[in-house]
Computed example of a mutant assay.
Amino acid sequence: MVVMICSHFQHSSLSILSSSSSSFSSSRLYLSTSRSSVSCSIMDTQKKQGRSKFLEFPFVSAPHKNLMLDLVSTVEDRFESHLLPCSLPPDVQYYKSKNGTSQVSLHIRPSNTDSPIDFVMGSWVHAELPTGGSLDITSLSAYLNSSNDAPNFVFELIRSSPTMLILVLDLPPRKDLVLWPDYLKTFYEDTKLDTHKQALEKIPEVQPYITSSLFIRSVASPTAIFVRIQTENDEGERIDEIIKNHIDPVSKQVLGIWLDHCACAEREVGEEDKAYLIKRDGVIRNKTIEVDLGSSFPRLFGPEAAKQILEAIKEYFTV
């Protein structure tokens, strides 16, 4: 027994060192793996929370919300294998002003390198107005990259009162329609896009809406739908009826045209045309941030928060 004990202690120091070293390495690996797992878990949770918040559309009516959810799901289902998860910071995916009067949810999904899609962006904005009531904006836009010269997709509903709504629905061209008449014929004439605009204009409460921004007017297509819907003081029932029975089907039809004839179109784009698209897309995206978002976000969320949100958007808008 004594011999066995002595023999044991002769090797014990090496065994302990070896065991300690192995345990320490294992512990470091475990801690590193644990931290990585926790970090990934937190990030996954934040992504889910950001997406969940975006899909709430909490301040709009049921017909309005249902339309937004249908449009978002249609685009994502069509390109699910191409789209990557939203990686915006949590405080950009959802931001609420300190005084609680303004909120924004922003969801941007970039695509993989094999897709003609550059990114898809959805958002909702809610702001309480000093005069009472609120401003609610919901939007969905999809941008193509330079491998496809087809038009982009833009949809926006702006509601400043229960009885007033502005609809923006367009496939903005990415080439000059005068220099490329075939582009006009392929994407606007052959698809009969103008019939959807004409259908909405037959509704008595629908009037043309002319934006004060000359830039936005200059980049819109000839079939762009810019309409104002003004109804009687009925707490919004008539506008919800128009959304459900008219705006909903028209918006889905236009989105279907974009998906089938633009996003999924097999277009041959040469190197010279790619360079033109990159330059043109870059100018328009920069101007969109400067003229549209850059002027409205600081008023809604304050300069610091607006800067943070806009900087995050710029990363995707940069061509």
Results as ranks from 00 to 15, higher is better:
S213D: 05
K65C: 06
L135A: 11
Y276L: 12
I210V: 15
I239D: 01
I166Q: 08
P204I: 07
S23N: 07
S27K: 04
G133E: 03
C264G: 02
N286T: 14
K307E: 13
C262L: 01
E304T: 10
V219A: 11
L29A: 13
K197S: 11
K279R: 12
T318Y: 10
D44A: 13
L165T: 04
L157V: 10
G256D: 13
I210K: 03
D170A: 12
P116V: 06
I243L: 01
S115F: 08
A275E: 10
R285W: 13
L144Y: 04
F226Q: 07
P151A: 00
P89Y: 08
H8E: 10
E232C: 03
F54A: 07
L157S: 06
I5Q: 09
A142R: 04
D260T: 15
V319W: 12
V269Q: 02
P151S: 03
F301M: 09
T131W: 01
W124I: 10
D170S: 13
G282K: 05
V291Y: 03
D149L: 03
A220L: 12
V168Y: 11
S26R: 10
I257D: 04
K96F: 00
G294A: 08
G256S: 13
P58R: 05
D77W: 02
K252Y: 04
E271G: 14
C86Q: 09
E266R: 15
S61G: 05
P85S: 08
N245M: 06
F226S: 08
L71A: 10
E76F: 13
Y94V: 11
E235C: 12
V283C: 07
G282H: 06
M1N: 03
D70C: 12
A224F: 07
R174S: 13
G132H: 06
P172E: 03
L259Y: 05
S160H: 07
L179G: 01
Q10K: 14
E266W: 10
K98G: 14
S20K: 07
G50C: 06
T138S: 11
S19P: 00
D70I: 07
C264K: 06
I203R: 02
N152M: 05
V227L: 05
I229M: 09
S105P: 03
E235N: 15
Y143T: 14
D136S: 07
S296W: 04
A312F: 04
K48F: 02
T231N: 06
S37C: 08
I210W: 00
V168L: 14
S23V: 06
S295Y: 02
A220P: 07
H8M: 12
